[in-house]
Design a protein around this nucleic acid. Structure first.
Length: 210
DNA sequence: CTCCAGGAAACAG
DNA sequence: CTGTTTCATGGA
């Protein structure tokens, strides 16, 4: 089973995930750029449950500050309180400030993003793929876990995972986006830390069950 | 290289 | 109610 067939199988089972989730109405109403929400979400979700991130995003919306320019201008103590529900708020405050400075001035490269303290490869690639439509495949813990259970494959480096996956699927941005979203869906629905193989759409092809 | 602090909140048991 | 997990990262 190559990864392109895996992608098709997951797509057939779960349908299109339409990532990244963005409040289009909010940005239309206030004239902000939807990709700012993706950038902010990608930072806030580091090692944090997405539901906690949603609370922080709601706080920013209420203050009409869900955009990078506002984030850059906001007083630190105020911003800290708004993002508190997402956890690690002291650290994330600094990351938001650094990245908002960068992105309100320049079109980002991966190197430029990685040079911000607090931005690692997963966050950088999430921003590049989902906000800027650049061809980077996002590797997260879910991806590694699923690949390991399915095939037994483990790589040392983040970039090796991305290279491996990209080599087996069509070089299309939309597929990069959708495939990663489907990995997350599978990881949440069945391939959890403690796997629920009874409800897994891949139980017939998973190495874990052979 | 490995270990560990950063933190709120959902969630399982 | 308590312990664990959560769309990671960087410093010691």
């Amino acid at each position: 089973m190559n990864l392109n067939n895996l992608y098709k199988k997951l797509l057939k089972h779960y349908g299109y995930q339409k990532w990244w989730p963005v409040d289009v109405e909010y940005h239309k109403k206030y004239g902000s750029d939807p990709k700012d929400e993706i950038v902010i979400g990608a930072i806030l979700t580091q090692n944090t449950n997405w539901k906690n991130v949603e609370k922080a995003l709601e706080n920013l919306k209420k203050e009409k500050t869900l955009n990078l320019h506002a984030i850059f201008e906001l007083e630190e103590e105020h911003l800290k309180e708004l993002i508190r529900p997402a956890g690690f708020f002291q650290r994330k405050l600094k990351i938001l400030k650094e990245v908002s400075y960068l992105l309100t001035r320049y079109y980002p490269t991966r190197e430029a993003l990685l040079n911000r303290k607090g931005v690692g490869k997963e966050t950088a690639d999430s921003i590049l793929l989902y906000a800027y439509n650049e061809p980077f495949f996002v590797i997260d813990m879910y991806t590694k876990r699923i690949l390991y259970r399915l095939t037994g494959i483990v790589f040392d480096e983040y970039d090796e995972y991305a290279k491996f996956i990209k080599s087996q699927i069509p070089q299309k941005i939309d597929i990069y986006k959708e495939f990663h979203a489907l990995f997350v869906k599978l990881a949440k629905e069945s391939c959890q830390k403690t796997p629920r193989c009874d409800v897994c759409p891949l139980k017939d092809i998973c190495k874990k069950n052979i």
